[in-house]
Simulated assay, not measured.
Amino acid sequence: MSPFNQTTDNHQTFTLTGIPGMPEKDFWMALPLCLLYSTTFLGNVIILVVIKVERSLHEPMYYFLAMLAATDLSLSLSSMPTMISVHWFNWRSITLDACVTQMFFIHTFGGVESGVLVAMAFDRFVAIRFPLHYATILTHGVISKIGAIVLLRSVGAVLPVPFLIKRLPFCHSNILSHAYCLHQDAMRLACADTRVNSIYGLLAVIFIIVLDALILLISYFLILQAVLGIASREERLKALNTCFSHICAVLLFYVPLIGMTLIHRFGKHLSPIVHTLMANVYLLLPPVLNPVVYSVRTKQIRQRIVRVKFGIGRQHGLVFIIIDARKQGC
Protein backbone atom coordinates (compact mmCIF):
# COMPACT_ATOMS: atom_id res chain seq x y z
CA MET A 1 0.00 0.00 0.00
CA SER A 2 1.23 3.49 -0.81
CA PRO A 3 2.53 5.44 2.21
CA PHE A 4 0.43 8.38 1.04
CA ASN A 5 -2.97 6.79 1.59
CA GLN A 6 -2.40 4.76 4.70
CA THR A 7 -4.87 5.43 7.46
CA THR A 8 -3.32 5.31 10.89
CA ASP A 9 -3.71 7.27 14.08
CA ASN A 10 -4.22 10.95 13.28
CA HIS A 11 -1.36 11.75 15.63
CA GLN A 12 0.94 9.90 13.22
CA THR A 13 -0.73 10.91 9.94
CA PHE A 14 -1.00 14.22 8.12
CA THR A 15 -3.50 15.25 5.48
CA LEU A 16 -2.10 16.97 2.41
CA THR A 17 -3.94 19.83 0.72
CA GLY A 18 -4.47 20.40 -2.98
CA ILE A 19 -6.23 23.60 -4.04
CA PRO A 20 -7.63 25.13 -0.82
CA GLY A 21 -11.40 25.44 -0.90
CA MET A 22 -11.65 23.86 -4.35
CA PRO A 23 -10.94 20.13 -4.00
CA GLU A 24 -13.05 19.41 -7.06
CA LYS A 25 -10.48 21.31 -9.15
CA ASP A 26 -7.55 19.16 -8.02
CA PHE A 27 -7.90 16.68 -10.85
CA TRP A 28 -7.50 19.45 -13.42
CA MET A 29 -4.17 20.37 -11.86
CA ALA A 30 -2.80 16.88 -12.54
CA LEU A 31 -2.13 17.39 -16.24
CA PRO A 32 -0.27 20.74 -15.86
CA LEU A 33 1.77 19.24 -13.02
CA CYS A 34 2.70 16.22 -15.11
CA LEU A 35 3.73 18.52 -17.95
CA LEU A 36 5.84 20.62 -15.57
CA TYR A 37 7.55 17.60 -14.06
CA SER A 38 8.11 16.07 -17.51
CA THR A 39 9.61 19.35 -18.77
CA THR A 40 11.80 19.59 -15.67
CA PHE A 41 13.02 16.02 -16.04
CA LEU A 42 13.69 16.28 -19.78
CA GLY A 43 15.37 19.71 -19.61
CA ASN A 44 17.73 18.87 -16.78
CA VAL A 45 18.58 15.42 -18.13
CA ILE A 46 19.45 16.94 -21.52
CA ILE A 47 21.75 19.46 -19.81
CA LEU A 48 23.48 16.67 -17.87
CA VAL A 49 23.86 14.38 -20.89
CA VAL A 50 25.15 17.14 -23.20
CA ILE A 51 27.74 18.24 -20.63
CA LYS A 52 28.87 14.64 -20.10
CA VAL A 53 29.08 13.76 -23.81
CA GLU A 54 30.70 16.95 -25.14
CA ARG A 55 34.38 17.16 -24.19
CA SER A 56 34.45 20.86 -25.08
CA LEU A 57 32.07 21.44 -22.14
CA HIS A 58 34.34 19.75 -19.62
CA GLU A 59 35.14 23.08 -17.98
CA PRO A 60 34.47 24.41 -14.45
CA MET A 61 31.53 26.57 -15.55
CA TYR A 62 29.69 23.57 -17.02
CA TYR A 63 30.55 21.28 -14.13
CA PHE A 64 28.81 23.73 -11.80
CA LEU A 65 25.91 23.92 -14.26
CA ALA A 66 25.69 20.11 -14.11
CA MET A 67 25.51 20.37 -10.30
CA LEU A 68 22.66 22.87 -10.63
CA ALA A 69 20.78 20.62 -13.07
CA ALA A 70 21.22 17.57 -10.80
CA THR A 71 20.01 19.59 -7.81
CA ASP A 72 16.97 20.91 -9.69
CA LEU A 73 16.15 17.38 -10.77
CA SER A 74 16.45 16.08 -7.21
CA LEU A 75 14.39 18.96 -5.75
CA SER A 76 11.65 18.34 -8.29
CA LEU A 77 11.59 14.59 -7.66
CA SER A 78 11.40 15.20 -3.89
CA SER A 79 8.01 16.90 -4.16
CA MET A 80 6.61 14.97 -7.14
CA PRO A 81 5.25 11.82 -5.38
CA THR A 82 2.85 13.65 -3.07
CA MET A 83 1.95 16.35 -5.59
CA ILE A 84 0.85 13.73 -8.10
CA SER A 85 -0.81 11.54 -5.45
CA VAL A 86 -2.97 14.45 -4.25
CA HIS A 87 -3.96 15.95 -7.59
CA TRP A 88 -4.22 12.77 -9.66
CA PHE A 89 -5.26 9.99 -7.28
CA ASN A 90 -6.76 12.07 -4.45
CA TRP A 91 -4.50 10.28 -1.94
CA ARG A 92 -4.15 12.91 0.78
CA SER A 93 -2.87 11.04 3.84
CA ILE A 94 0.84 10.78 4.50
CA THR A 95 2.47 9.08 7.46
CA LEU A 96 4.71 11.03 9.81
CA ASP A 97 7.78 9.07 8.71
CA ALA A 98 7.08 9.69 5.03
CA CYS A 99 6.42 13.36 5.77
CA VAL A 100 9.68 13.98 7.64
CA THR A 101 11.60 12.09 4.95
CA GLN A 102 10.12 14.29 2.24
CA MET A 103 10.75 17.52 4.15
CA PHE A 104 14.36 16.44 4.74
CA PHE A 105 15.00 16.05 1.01
CA ILE A 106 13.11 19.20 -0.01
CA HIS A 107 14.95 21.39 2.50
CA THR A 108 18.29 19.69 1.81
CA PHE A 109 18.16 20.17 -1.95
CA GLY A 110 16.89 23.71 -1.47
CA GLY A 111 20.03 24.41 0.58
CA VAL A 112 22.22 22.64 -1.98
CA GLU A 113 20.80 24.80 -4.77
CA SER A 114 21.59 27.94 -2.81
CA GLY A 115 25.16 26.71 -2.26
CA VAL A 116 25.61 25.78 -5.93
CA LEU A 117 24.52 29.28 -6.96
CA VAL A 118 27.23 30.69 -4.67
CA ALA A 119 29.79 28.31 -6.22
CA MET A 120 28.75 29.48 -9.70
CA ALA A 121 29.24 33.11 -8.62
CA PHE A 122 32.75 32.21 -7.43
CA ASP A 123 33.36 30.54 -10.78
CA ARG A 124 32.37 33.73 -12.65
CA PHE A 125 34.55 35.87 -10.37
CA VAL A 126 37.63 33.70 -11.01
CA ALA A 127 36.92 33.61 -14.77
CA ILE A 128 36.69 37.42 -14.97
CA ARG A 129 39.30 38.40 -12.37
CA PHE A 130 41.92 35.72 -13.13
CA PRO A 131 41.21 34.53 -16.70
CA LEU A 132 44.76 33.25 -17.29
CA HIS A 133 44.69 31.15 -14.12
CA TYR A 134 41.05 30.02 -14.39
CA ALA A 135 41.79 26.36 -15.17
CA THR A 136 44.60 26.11 -12.63
CA ILE A 137 42.51 27.58 -9.78
CA LEU A 138 39.32 25.62 -10.46
CA THR A 139 40.79 22.17 -10.97
CA HIS A 140 38.71 19.00 -10.91
CA GLY A 141 39.79 18.40 -7.32
CA VAL A 142 38.74 21.89 -6.20
CA ILE A 143 35.38 21.59 -7.96
CA SER A 144 34.75 18.21 -6.32
CA LYS A 145 35.60 19.62 -2.89
CA ILE A 146 33.29 22.60 -3.43
CA GLY A 147 30.45 20.26 -4.42
CA ALA A 148 31.06 18.03 -1.39
CA ILE A 149 31.15 21.02 0.99
CA VAL A 150 27.89 22.38 -0.44
CA LEU A 151 26.16 19.01 -0.05
CA LEU A 152 27.53 18.23 3.43
CA ARG A 153 26.69 21.71 4.71
CA SER A 154 23.06 21.39 3.62
CA VAL A 155 22.70 17.82 4.91
CA GLY A 156 24.26 18.79 8.25
CA ALA A 157 21.99 21.82 8.64
CA VAL A 158 18.77 19.97 7.76
CA LEU A 159 19.52 16.61 9.45
CA PRO A 160 18.20 17.64 12.91
CA VAL A 161 14.87 18.80 11.43
CA PRO A 162 13.20 15.34 11.15
CA PHE A 163 14.19 14.54 14.75
CA LEU A 164 12.88 17.90 15.99
CA ILE A 165 9.56 17.25 14.26
CA LYS A 166 9.22 13.63 15.41
CA ARG A 167 9.66 14.60 19.07
CA LEU A 168 6.54 16.82 18.91
CA PRO A 169 3.05 15.54 19.80
CA PHE A 170 0.33 16.26 17.23
CA CYS A 171 -3.10 16.36 18.79
CA HIS A 172 -4.77 19.27 16.97
CA SER A 173 -5.58 19.58 13.28
CA ASN A 174 -3.42 17.38 11.05
CA ILE A 175 -4.16 19.22 7.80
CA LEU A 176 -1.05 20.59 6.06
CA SER A 177 -1.17 23.69 3.87
CA HIS A 178 0.43 22.13 0.79
CA ALA A 179 0.60 18.94 -1.23
CA TYR A 180 4.02 18.20 0.28
CA CYS A 181 5.70 18.48 3.68
CA LEU A 182 7.66 21.49 4.94
CA HIS A 183 9.13 21.95 8.41
CA GLN A 184 7.33 25.20 9.22
CA ASP A 185 4.02 23.79 7.99
CA ALA A 186 4.16 20.63 10.12
CA MET A 187 5.53 22.53 13.11
CA ARG A 188 2.46 24.75 13.38
CA LEU A 189 0.23 21.70 13.92
CA ALA A 190 2.03 20.60 17.09
CA CYS A 191 0.29 20.91 20.45
CA ALA A 192 3.52 21.54 22.37
CA ASP A 193 6.12 24.25 22.71
CA THR A 194 7.83 24.66 19.31
CA ARG A 195 10.36 27.33 20.25
CA VAL A 196 13.27 24.95 19.73
CA ASN A 197 12.02 24.14 16.23
CA SER A 198 11.45 27.81 15.45
CA ILE A 199 14.87 28.90 16.70
CA TYR A 200 16.67 26.08 14.91
CA GLY A 201 14.73 26.71 11.71
CA LEU A 202 15.68 30.40 11.85
CA LEU A 203 19.34 29.57 12.48
CA ALA A 204 19.37 27.10 9.57
CA VAL A 205 17.87 29.71 7.25
CA ILE A 206 20.44 32.29 8.36
CA PHE A 207 23.29 29.79 8.00
CA ILE A 208 22.29 28.77 4.48
CA ILE A 209 19.95 31.19 2.71
CA VAL A 210 20.86 34.52 4.32
CA LEU A 211 24.59 33.80 4.37
CA ASP A 212 24.53 32.68 0.74
CA ALA A 213 22.58 35.78 -0.29
CA LEU A 214 25.20 38.00 1.37
CA ILE A 215 28.03 36.08 -0.32
CA LEU A 216 26.27 36.45 -3.68
CA LEU A 217 25.97 40.21 -3.19
CA ILE A 218 29.65 40.49 -2.24
CA SER A 219 30.63 38.26 -5.17
CA TYR A 220 28.83 40.43 -7.69
CA PHE A 221 30.27 43.57 -6.14
CA LEU A 222 33.75 42.09 -6.70
CA ILE A 223 32.76 40.91 -10.19
CA LEU A 224 31.57 44.41 -11.06
CA GLN A 225 34.84 45.85 -9.78
CA ALA A 226 36.78 43.39 -11.93
CA VAL A 227 34.64 44.17 -15.00
CA LEU A 228 35.13 47.93 -14.58
CA GLY A 229 38.87 47.30 -14.50
CA ILE A 230 38.78 45.89 -18.03
CA ALA A 231 39.93 48.52 -20.53
CA SER A 232 37.93 47.46 -23.59
CA ARG A 233 34.20 48.20 -23.62
CA GLU A 234 33.55 45.12 -25.76
CA GLU A 235 35.41 42.92 -23.30
CA ARG A 236 33.46 44.41 -20.39
CA LEU A 237 30.15 43.62 -22.10
CA LYS A 238 31.37 40.12 -22.96
CA ALA A 239 32.36 39.49 -19.34
CA LEU A 240 29.00 40.73 -18.04
CA ASN A 241 27.18 38.61 -20.61
CA THR A 242 28.75 35.45 -19.15
CA CYS A 243 27.06 36.31 -15.83
CA PHE A 244 23.57 36.90 -17.23
CA SER A 245 22.40 33.27 -17.07
CA HIS A 246 23.65 32.95 -13.49
CA ILE A 247 21.87 36.16 -12.46
CA CYS A 248 18.64 34.76 -13.93
CA ALA A 249 19.11 31.52 -11.96
CA VAL A 250 19.71 33.50 -8.75
CA LEU A 251 16.54 35.55 -9.32
CA LEU A 252 14.50 32.44 -10.14
CA PHE A 253 15.55 30.91 -6.82
CA TYR A 254 15.52 33.88 -4.44
CA VAL A 255 12.55 35.94 -5.67
CA PRO A 256 9.95 33.15 -5.13
CA LEU A 257 11.68 32.21 -1.86
CA ILE A 258 11.53 35.78 -0.54
CA GLY A 259 7.95 36.12 -1.77
CA MET A 260 6.89 32.91 -0.01
CA THR A 261 8.66 33.98 3.20
CA LEU A 262 6.99 37.42 3.21
CA ILE A 263 3.57 35.93 2.54
CA HIS A 264 3.97 33.41 5.37
CA ARG A 265 5.19 36.17 7.69
CA PHE A 266 2.91 39.10 6.81
CA GLY A 267 0.19 37.66 4.56
CA LYS A 268 -1.86 35.62 7.01
CA HIS A 269 -4.94 37.55 5.85
CA LEU A 270 -4.43 36.50 2.24
CA SER A 271 -6.32 33.66 0.59
CA PRO A 272 -4.86 30.16 1.16
CA ILE A 273 -4.69 29.87 -2.62
CA VAL A 274 -2.04 32.62 -2.65
CA HIS A 275 0.07 30.73 -0.09
CA THR A 276 -0.25 27.50 -2.08
CA LEU A 277 0.57 29.23 -5.36
CA MET A 278 3.72 30.89 -4.01
CA ALA A 279 4.94 27.66 -2.40
CA ASN A 280 4.42 25.75 -5.66
CA VAL A 281 6.16 28.48 -7.66
CA TYR A 282 9.16 28.28 -5.31
CA LEU A 283 9.47 24.52 -5.82
CA LEU A 284 8.52 24.19 -9.49
CA LEU A 285 9.69 27.37 -11.25
CA PRO A 286 13.53 27.18 -10.91
CA PRO A 287 13.84 23.51 -12.00
CA VAL A 288 11.67 24.19 -15.06
CA LEU A 289 13.23 27.47 -16.19
CA ASN A 290 16.91 27.04 -15.33
CA PRO A 291 17.55 24.62 -18.24
CA VAL A 292 15.68 26.98 -20.56
CA VAL A 293 17.73 30.01 -19.46
CA TYR A 294 21.06 28.23 -19.83
CA SER A 295 20.08 26.62 -23.13
CA VAL A 296 19.02 29.95 -24.61
CA ARG A 297 21.77 32.12 -23.13
CA THR A 298 24.77 29.75 -23.38
CA LYS A 299 25.89 29.46 -26.99
CA GLN A 300 27.88 26.24 -26.57
CA ILE A 301 24.96 24.38 -25.01
CA ARG A 302 22.40 25.85 -27.40
CA GLN A 303 24.39 24.78 -30.45
CA ARG A 304 24.74 21.23 -29.22
CA ILE A 305 21.09 20.89 -28.22
CA VAL A 306 19.99 22.19 -31.64
CA ARG A 307 22.18 19.57 -33.32
CA VAL A 308 21.09 16.74 -31.10
CA LYS A 309 19.61 13.64 -32.65
CA PHE A 310 17.56 11.58 -30.30
CA GLY A 311 17.45 7.85 -30.57
CA ILE A 312 16.65 5.02 -28.27
CA GLY A 313 19.17 2.32 -27.57
CA ARG A 314 20.02 -0.20 -24.92
CA GLN A 315 23.18 -0.58 -22.90
CA HIS A 316 23.50 -2.98 -20.01
CA GLY A 317 19.73 -3.53 -20.22
CA LEU A 318 18.84 0.17 -19.65
CA VAL A 319 17.08 2.45 -22.10
CA PHE A 320 19.10 5.60 -22.69
CA ILE A 321 19.20 8.68 -24.95
CA ILE A 322 21.81 8.71 -27.68
CA ILE A 323 23.16 12.17 -28.32
CA ASP A 324 24.72 12.18 -31.78
CA ALA A 325 26.33 15.62 -31.81
CA ARG A 326 29.83 14.91 -33.02
CA LYS A 327 28.55 13.66 -36.38
CA GLN A 328 27.23 17.15 -36.97
CA GLY A 329 30.71 18.65 -36.75
CA CYS A 330 30.60 19.86 -33.15
Results as ranks from 00 to 15, higher is better:
Glu59His: 09
Glu59Leu: 14
Glu59Gln: 07
Glu59Ser: 13
Pro60Glu: 06
Met61Ala: 14
Met61Tyr: 15
Met61His: 13
Tyr62Gln: 03
Tyr62His: 09
Tyr63Pro: 01
Phe64Thr: 14
Leu65Ile: 14
Ala66Asn: 12
Ala66Phe: 07
Met67Phe: 11
Met67Gly: 03
Met67His: 03
Met67Thr: 03
Leu68Asp: 04
Leu68Cys: 09
Ala69Trp: 04
Asp72Asn: 15
Asp72Tyr: 08
Leu73Thr: 01
Ser74Phe: 15
Ser74Cys: 15
Ser74Gly: 12
Ser74Ala: 15
Leu77Trp: 13
Leu77Arg: 07
Leu77Asp: 06
Met80Ser: 02
Pro81Asp: 07
Pro81His: 11
Pro81Ile: 01
Pro81Met: 06
Pro81Gly: 11
Thr82Trp: 11
Met83Ser: 15
Met83Val: 11
Ile84Tyr: 03
Ser85Phe: 04
Ser85Met: 05
His87Asn: 13
Phe89Met: 12
Phe89Cys: 04
Phe89Leu: 06
Asn90Thr: 03
Asn90Trp: 03
Asn90Cys: 05
Trp91Arg: 13
Trp91Thr: 11
Trp91Ala: 11
Trp91Asp: 14
Ser93Met: 10
Ile94Tyr: 00
Thr95Ile: 06
Leu96Thr: 04
Ala98Trp: 07
Ala98Gly: 13
Ala98Asp: 08
Cys99Arg: 02
Cys99Asp: 01
Cys99His: 02
Thr101Lys: 08
Thr101Gly: 15
Met103Cys: 11
Met103Arg: 02
Met103Gly: 00
Phe104Ile: 08
Phe104Thr: 06
Phe104Gln: 04
Phe105Tyr: 09
Ile106Cys: 05
His107Asp: 03
Thr108Val: 10
Thr108Pro: 08
Phe109Met: 14
Phe109Pro: 07
Phe109Leu: 05
Phe109Lys: 06
Gly110Phe: 15
Val112Cys: 05
Glu113Lys: 15
Val116Asp: 09
Val116His: 10
Val116Arg: 09
Val118Arg: 02
Ala119Ser: 02
Ala119Trp: 03
Met120Cys: 03
Ala121Gln: 10
Ala121Tyr: 02
Ala121Ser: 15
Phe122Arg: 14
Phe122Asn: 12
Asp123Val: 01
Asp123Leu: 00
Asp123Arg: 05
Val126Gln: 02
Ala127Arg: 14
Ala127Met: 15
Ala127His: 10
Ile128Cys: 02
Ile128Gln: 01
Arg129Tyr: 14
Arg129Val: 02
Phe130Cys: 06
Phe130Leu: 13
Pro131Tyr: 09
Pro131His: 07
Leu132Glu: 11
Leu132Thr: 09
His133Tyr: 06
Tyr134Ala: 07
Tyr134Met: 05
Ala135Ile: 04
Ala135Gly: 10
Thr136Ile: 09
Ile137Gly: 00
Leu138Trp: 00
Thr139Ala: 13
His140Tyr: 14
Gly141Gln: 12
Gly141Glu: 07
Gly141Asn: 14
Gly141Arg: 10
Val142Asn: 13
Val142Arg: 15
Ile143His: 08
Ser144Ala: 15
Lys145Arg: 12
Lys145Gly: 00
Ile146Gln: 07
Ala148Phe: 03
Ala148Ile: 04
Ala148Leu: 12
Ala148Trp: 06
Ala148Thr: 09
Ile149Asn: 00
Val150Ala: 13
Val150Gly: 10
Leu151Ser: 05
Ser154Tyr: 01
Ser154Gln: 00
Ser154Trp: 01
Val155Gly: 12
Val155Trp: 00
Val155Arg: 08
Val155Thr: 10
Val155Asn: 02
Gly156Ile: 00
Ala157Arg: 08
